[in-house]
C-alpha cells in the first residue's frame, strides 16, 4: 500500500450504538481498485459505508477523500466530494412514492454529473422497466428487490464519479445479474485508468471474487484482516489431511473442520513448516475460504 494512492483514508474512526462500537484505527481504500468489505451481519459494514457516503455524520475520527478533502470539506457545496462519490444502499434509498421517472428527474437535480441518456440506456439494458406496461411511471415500491437494486446501480453508474460505495449490491440480484454487475464494476475501474475506485460490502464473496482486488474483513466493529487478494492467498494455505493427524493439526491450523475421515482447514503460510511430516494436500484458498476462516476465528457465533 506504500506506493498506492488512497481513495479514502480513515483515521481513529469511532461510532457507538447501544451495545456496539465500531472502531477503525486506520484504514485506507486503495484508489483504482475494487475493494470488498466482508463481515458477519452486524459487523459494522453498513455503518462504515454510510459514514463514508455522508449519510451518517454522528461519528468521531477523520476521513480524507482522494488525498485532498476531509470529511468536513465533503459537506461544503464548493467541494466536489459528494459529486465524485456514488452511493447505493439497501435501506431507504428512494422515497416509496417515487416513480422511476421521478427518480431520474430528482437524481438529475441532485447531481451535476448525471447523464440521463446513459441512465435510460441502463434502464433498457438491464431490463428494469421495459417488460412493464407502466414504463417509467412504475413506482419504486412496486419494483422487485432486484430491479430496485438495478435502478440504484443505473443511477450511480450513469454519473461522473470517481468512487462507488455499494452496500450489498449483489444480495438481491440473480446469478446472471451478479455477473453483469461484476462486468460493470470491471469496466468502471478500467475506464478510470487508475482513478476510479469501487468499495462494496458483500456476503456473496464467491460471486464477487473475480472483481475483488482488495479485501477488508470486519468483525464486531473492528477490521480483523485486510490486504490485496493475491497477498492474502499467499498468507493463507488451504490444507486437507488424514484423521490420525487431527490432534497435531489442531494445534497448528488457523481454522479446522473435522470429520471421521480427516480434516481440512486454513493454515497460515508462515506455519506450514510445522506441518512437515504430515500427509497433507495443500491448495490455494479462495477469497471466500479465507474470509470464512478469518470470520470463524473472530466470530462470537458458537454452535458448539
Amino acid at each position: 500500500m506504500e506506493n498506492i494512492k488512497s481513495a479514502v483514508s480513515i483515521r481513529n474512526f469511532n461510532k457507538k450504538y447501544k451495545g456496539f462500537s465500531l472502531d477503525v484505527a486506520a484504514l485506507d481504500i486503495p484508489q483504482g481498485f475494487s475493494t470488498a468489505l466482508i463481515g458477519e451481519n452486524g459487523a459494522g459494514k453498513t455503518t462504515l459505508l454510510n459514514a463514508m457516503a455522508g449519510i451518517r455524520l454522528d461519528y468521531k475520527g477523520s476521513m480524507e477523500f482522494f488525498g485532498q478533502w476531509s470529511d468536513k470539506d465533503r459537506e461544503k457545496e464548493e467541494n466536489p466530494v459528494r459529486e465524485l462519490i456514488g452511493y447505493t444502499g439497501p435501506g431507504n434509498y428512494y422515497l416509496p412514492q417515487w416513480t422511476v421517472k421521478q427518480v431520474e428527474e430528482i437524481t438529475d437535480m441532485l447531481f451535476e454529473g448525471f447523464d440521463r441518456r446513459r441512465f435510460e440506456r441502463y434502464l433498457e439494458q438491464l431490463q428494469i422497466i421495459t417488460t412493464d406496461s407502466k414504463g417509467k411511471s412504475k413506482k419504486v415500491n412496486d419494483l422487485s428487490d432486484g430491479n430496485r437494486m438495478k435502478l440504484m446501480l443505473s443511477g450511480v453508474f450513469a454519473r461522473q464519479t470517481k468512487m462507488l460505495l455499494l452496500d450489498e449490491p449483489a444480495s438481491p440480484l440473480d446469478p446472471l445479474m451478479r455477473d453483469v454487475l461484476c462486468d460493470m464494476i470491471r469496466a468502471y475501474i478500467e475506464q478510470g485508468a487508475g482513478e476510479n475506485t469501487v468499495f462494496f460490502s458483500t456476503h456473496n464473496i464467491a460471486d464477487m471474487e473475480n472483481v475483488t482486488d482488495y479485501a477488508i474483513i470486519m468483525e464486531h466493529g473492528r477490521v480483523v484482516e485486510k490486504g490485496f487478494v493475491e497477498d492474502l492467498k499467499e498468507k493463507y494455505v488451504y490444507v486437507k489431511g488424514e484423521a490420525e493427524d487431527i490432534p497435531m493439526a489442531e494445534k497448528i491450523l488457523y481454522t479446522i473442520t473435522k470429520n471421521k475421515y480427516g480434516y481440512e482447514g486454513m493454515c497460515l503460510a508462515d506455519h506450514m513448516n510445522q506441518l512437515a511430516g504430515l500427509d497433507i494436500e495443500v491448495s490455494t484458498p479462495t477469497l471466500s475460504q479465507i474470509s470464512v476462516a478469518v470470520m470463524k476465528t473472530n466470530s462470537r457465533v458458537n454452535l458448539q
Binding site: 449519510i55 461544503k76 467541494n79 466530494v81 459528494r82 459529486e83 452511493y87 434509498y93 428512494y94 441532485l110
Partner: peptide
C-alpha cells in the same frame, strides 16, 4: 431518502 442525503445539494 439516502439518495437525497448522499447529495451535497
Amino acid at each position: 431518502s439516502e439518495l437525497i442525503k448522499s447529495s451535497v445539494r
